[in-house]
Every structure is written in C-alpha cells, then in structure tokens.
Computed example of a mutant assay.
Amino acid sequence: MYDRLRAASEAFDRKIGWHRVGFLVSLAVIAAAAVVLWKMLHGIDVHEVIAAVKAIPRFDIVVAGAFVAAGYFTLTFYDYFALHTIGRGDVPYRIAALAGFTSYSVGHNVGASAFTGGAVRYRIYSRHGLSAIDVAKVCFVAGFTFWLGNATVLGLGIAIAPEAASAINQVPAWVNRGLAVVTLIALATYVGWVWKTRRVIGRSNWEVTLPGGPLTFLQIMIGIVDLGCCAAAMYMLVPHEPYIGFITLAVIFVAATLLGFASHSPGGLGVFDAAMLVALWQFDKEQLLAGLLLFRLLYYLVPFALALLILGLREVWLAIERSRGRAAGTTVADAAPARARPAPAGDARAAG
C-alpha cells in the first residue's frame, strides 16, 4: 500500500508538480483573504483604531509581551530537541537558542520560512560542524514538532469548543468535532507506532530516527507550550468585552496562524488578520484591529529587529575574528622563514 501511494505521488509530481499545487493554494488563500479584508475593513475609522490602541491597558501589553518572550524562549527548544534527535547533542544550548530564535524571527517576517529559516540555521550551525544535510534534518524535526503541537492543540481545542473552528471554516460544529476526534486518534496511533520500536524514515544519506514514545510526548509538550504562550499573548490584546473563553480564542488563533502559514505571505500578513476578523465577529472591529496591530508589533516586528541586530553583530564579530586570524597567520609565516634561513657559505658566524 505504501509503495503504491509513493508511486502515485511521484507520478503526480512528474506530470503536474506538487510545487505548482502549493503555489496555486497559496495564491487562492491570499486572494480570498484580500477580498475578506476589503469587505471587513471598508469603513474603518483610522482615528478610532489609534484611539483603541491607546486605550489598551499598559498592564495587558506588558503581560502580552512576557508571553511573547516565553513563546520565543520555547521556540529555542525546537532546535535543541532536534539537535539531540539527529545525534548532535554536542552543540551547546546557546547555539541552538541563537539559531532557533533568529531563524524563526526571520522566517516569520520574510515568509517561506522553510528556506529563509533554513538559510539562517545553516549560517550558524555550519561553524559547528553541521552539514547542509544535518541542517535539513534539524529543520525537519523542528517543523515536525511544530505540526505535532498544532495537531494536538487543535484536536483538543476543537473537541472541546467545535464552534470556534466553525467560525472560520463555516462547517457545522459536529463535523469539526468529528474531525478533531479523528486527529486525536491519528496522534495516538502515531505515538503508539513510534513507541513499539525504533522508527527510521528517509533513505540513503538522508535518514532521521524519529523520537520514541516518551520523547514524542516531550516533543508535543514543547509545541503546546509554544502555541499556548502565543495564544495567551493574543488573548491579552483582544477586547475584554464581550467575554470569550481562552480555549475558543486559542483554536481561532492557531487556525488563523496555520492559514497564514499556508499562504507563505510574510508573517501571514492579510491572511491571519482576515481569519481573526471573520472568526471574532462579536468584537468591535476597531478594537480588535488595534489588538492585532499590537500583536504584530510584539510578536513579529520587535523579535525581527532584535534578530537582525544579533545576526549583524555576529557577522561583525566573525569578520574581526577572520581579520585577526589572517594577521596572526601572516606574522607566523613571516617569522618562520627568518628562523629557518641558512647562513651564507662564507659567513664567519656560520663557520664558527
């Protein structure tokens, strides 16, 4: 069965190409979001949005910022976990934290995070002996952790509050709850599959040993904590009235984030916002838009600026190191011939 599916997938890729399908899906998502935003934002008073931003309590903004910081701290463990999974536990946490924070900060804002984040990771990890294949494995395991966390949060959240998903996909609540149960069953099946024996995926020189049962639970928990912190940050910035439960908000937030991710637009710009505006229809549009703008500032722009600063300073430091290395190499090279230079044949000092 597996061989047939793989053969069908390869045949489809040759004749049509999965990348074309992905491009068309992204284009459709962005186009739909643009239409929704045009309708939702038509008639918005900019002055009211600015006033709504100023009206958000400073305490809520500070707490939201703390949740964002906690979320990015959790993101560093995506890479640290991935390094241990591929057998590179010798790479210290500080390097994993640097690569994790900067790659996600850049990937979130530039878009096409699989490529942009991978490039940042390779720039950092290559100095510690990781090859391009090793970095690809790190990206795979980190991405798998992200998807396991998303599947768990959405599965549990939609099973509890299916109407939250219905606000986005307009599907009856009972259908969404059924899909959530299927997702949870699939997750349980996967955990049981990796628990039984050592599982290796890939072929030739690209093979990854999947984490076993206990480590998979740890992997899922990392994803849950990351998404929980992000959702909590958003929860602090949406209007307090009318009341909405955290689980409902978390489901809407994660679903909107995944739609933005599927669009490949930088930071899910437009797509994430359109989904949030549609799903959270009960809030005042100006107040909700104010919360979304602040969230973008805290979760996207500030970490992006910080990551660029860190990467820039790192490049300057590496350039200085290289310059010192070349200078030291030149000095040694100049000194070595002088010590080894033989004296002329008729030199009295050489004869004596």
Results as ranks from 00 to 15, higher is better:
Phe253Leu: 03
Ser9Glu: 08
Ala69Thr: 05
Val238Ile: 15
Asp60Trp: 04
Asp273Lys: 05
Val238Tyr: 10
Ser323Leu: 15
Val208Ser: 02
Val191Ala: 14
Leu288Ile: 05
Ala338His: 07
Ala262Asp: 01
Gly212Lys: 07
Gly267Val: 06
Leu289Asp: 02
Leu41Pro: 03
Val141Asp: 11
Ala180Thr: 12
Ala97Asn: 05
Leu293Cys: 09
Pro303Cys: 01
Asp134Gln: 08
Ser26Asp: 08
Ala333Val: 08
Ile86Thr: 12
Leu37Thr: 04
Leu306Glu: 03
Leu24Gln: 08
Ala32Tyr: 10
Gly117Glu: 12
Leu24Lys: 07
Phe253Ser: 03
Tyr80Lys: 13
Val175Cys: 01
Tyr93Ala: 07
Ala142Asp: 13
Gly267Arg: 08
Thr74Trp: 00
Asp13His: 13
Phe23Glu: 00
Val208His: 01
Val254Phe: 11
Asn109Ile: 01
Ala112Ser: 13
Gly22Leu: 13
His47Trp: 07
Lys137Phe: 03
Leu249Phe: 00
Glu163Ser: 14
Ile56Val: 15
Cys139Ile: 14
Val208Lys: 04
Ala351Asp: 10
Val254Arg: 04
Leu277Pro: 00
Asn176Ile: 00
Cys229Glu: 02
Ala96Met: 03
Glu10Thr: 08
His240Ile: 13
Met40Glu: 15
Val191Asp: 08
Arg177Gly: 01
Val225Asn: 01
Tyr300Trp: 06
Ala250Ser: 13
Thr102Arg: 03
Ala345Gly: 04
Val254His: 10
His108Leu: 14
Ala255Asp: 05
Leu179Ser: 02
Cys230Leu: 10
Met276Ile: 04
Ile95Thr: 03
Val120His: 09
Gly155Glu: 07
Leu259Ala: 14
Pro92Tyr: 04
Arg177Asn: 06
Val194Phe: 04
Leu301Trp: 15
Val91Leu: 10
His42Arg: 09
Arg14Ile: 11
Phe246Trp: 11
Ala274Met: 11
Gly65Ile: 11
Ala340Lys: 13
Trp193Cys: 00
Ala32Thr: 08
Ala52Glu: 06
Ala186Leu: 15
Leu301Lys: 10
Gly245Pro: 08
Leu37Gln: 03
Tyr299Asp: 00
Tyr299Asn: 04
Asp347Gln: 05
Ala11Ser: 14
Tyr104Lys: 07
Val254Pro: 09
Thr85Pro: 06
Trp281Asp: 15
Ala112Thr: 09
Lys54Gln: 14
Arg58His: 10
Ile56Gly: 05
His240Ser: 15
Trp18Cys: 08
Tyr122Thr: 03
Asp45Thr: 09
Leu301Cys: 11
Arg127Thr: 10
Ala69Glu: 00
Val316Lys: 12
Val181Trp: 13
Leu258Ala: 04
Val171Gln: 05
Ala250Arg: 01
Arg58Asn: 12
Gln170Cys: 05
Arg14Val: 13
Trp195Arg: 13
Ile56Cys: 09
Ala70Thr: 00
Glu286His: 13
Ala151Asn: 12
Glu163Gln: 14
Phe217Val: 15
Glu315Ser: 11
Phe23Trp: 11
Gly107Leu: 02
Phe77Glu: 02
Val62Ala: 14
Leu210Ser: 11
Gly22Asn: 01
Glu10Trp: 04
Leu288Glu: 03
Leu313Pro: 05
Val110Cys: 02
Leu269Cys: 02
His264Ile: 07
Pro214Tyr: 01
Leu210Met: 14
Ala97Gly: 12
Thr330Gln: 14
Thr197Tyr: 05
Asp79Gln: 09
Ala52Gln: 09
Arg94Gln: 07
Met1Asn: 06
Arg314Ser: 15
Val191Phe: 11
Ala305Met: 13
Ala64Trp: 00
Gly129Pro: 13
Ala28Gly: 08
